[in-house]
Design a binder for these strands. Structure first.
Lengths: 235, 235
DNA sequence: GAGCTTATGTACGCTTTCGTACCGACATTC
DNA sequence: GAATGTCGGTACGAAAGCGTACATAAGCTC
């Protein structure tokens, strides 16, 4: 395992662990460089690895009726991909893909089970993280049901902005449409509106957040609600 | 505790436990009669009791923007209300109300924690049940995003039909509208269409399922998907 | 720098649902 | 059996988003 430089990005789940358990876990991890678009899991397939992103972000997307889709959760360095394994389930319900490339600590399913057995701290933090994920998925449901595309887009931008620590990231309208469960043309219109107000700039898949406050104003309350849940249970 | 008659309705979570653990759990439960409309939990409040319905059904509803709402899960005798406690979280994110009156086994939060400590079988089945709930909430999100009111209504009817073992149950259009996240008038139209086709009959809050197959045909694939998840992990 | 691919902007008519309102039917209470 | 409250059917224009299509523009390959 490569040694991280001091001040290097860390995963916040791992950061909560007591030193011994953290070292046990790190020893079983490999540092992986994830490429955007890389598929980590497909619905119905076995989950063979868990991921603790340190700078990458991973999107989990439910597939619907063979053609539609909806992002149900977004994992950055605040979380982990592989929760079903912690619940005694080894198959993935959803597709998981790398959204923003970057690094992540990766561990085999076997080592993960070993860690769950020997690390009470890991069990505890993952229980709470599961609760956060449940809340977030419910928030996705509510948001998809009630809020306008533009607000939902702003929320998505904010969540990604929090998860990758850069004002710039890559994602096309096409991909956003798949995640938000709307038409590509709908994303273009909403993004155009945010651009006109100089809240973001957008060129060929490269988004830059220009005005974070403006973005927060454009988003629905779902963003604040989600952040509050995270802060309460994992802050 | 009242003794149940042989053949009396049982809770399916409890039914999976080995005899000793099941008896331990039963000893800590009281049989409660739940009235329709009774509020079991409010968002932000402590969860003081967990419920294992044996014939009642409990609806958990996320509140949005102070006026709107959406049902995120439906608990009948196949499940339990109180999952957050098993994840180390003691406050409820959602409102929980009794939908169809009936009986449930009720246990205090303290006893529930004791049971989690002494019963590996309970821990295991509740982990799997948590996974099922996560999948169902994601299905709600997808369904709210993509499917028509009439299909969603049919799905809801099917899920309730499965959970209370009777072809007749009580629920007003008003309440259905709150659960599906649509207008009351929208529910009336959709229900009217199902009535015209003699799939259900509806009079002043009393629904009767006349044609189960017809209802399945009217529902979206979300129903089948949810049932499949349940069968795989708790069947 | 020509040609191709990918990404974005924009337009059109159509469908669904929304917000709101009103009315009739039924149930309960006095 | 009259009054009151609840429940359900229906109507209307307005809004949002859909499916689709086409054009422009930016990057990539050769």
């Amino acid at each position: 395992m490569r040694k991280e430089k001091p001040g290097a990005p860390t995963n916040r789940i791992i950061a909560t662990l007591p030193t011994t358990e953290r070292n046990d876990l790190r020893r079983r991890c490999k540092l992986a460089e994830l490429e955007p678009g890389e598929v980590i899991a497909e619905p119905g397939q076995q989950i063979r690895q868990v991921y603790f992103p340190t700078s990458a972000s991973i999107s989990t997307i439910a597939m619907v009726d063979g053609q539609n889709s909806l992002e149900v959760s977004l994992v950055g360095r605040e979380g982990m991909y592989g929760i079903p394994l912690a619940l005694g389930v080894s198959v993935s319900s959803w597709r998981a893909t790398v959204l923003c490339g970057g690094s992540a600590l990766r561990m085999s399913a076997e080592d993960f089970h070993t860690m769950l057995n020997i690390s009470p701290g890991l069990r505890r933090v993952l229980q709470r993280y599961t609760h956060v994920i449940v809340s977030q998925i419910a928030q996705v449901a509510v948001c998809a049901c009630y809020h306008l595309v533009e607000s939902r887009l702003a929320r998505w931008m904010l969540m990604t902005h929090d998860r990758v620590s850069s004002d710039t990231f890559h994602v096309t309208h096409e991909l956003l449409a798949e995640m938000l469960g709307v038409r590509r043309a709908g994303v273009s219109t909403a993004a155009g509106s945010l651009q006109t107000r100089e809240v973001i700039s957008y060129t060929r898949g490269k988004v830059t957040v220009l005005d974070r406050k403006g973005l927060e104003a454009a988003a629905c309350d779902c963003y604040a609600a989600s952040e509050k849940v995270y802060a309460s249970f994992l802050g």
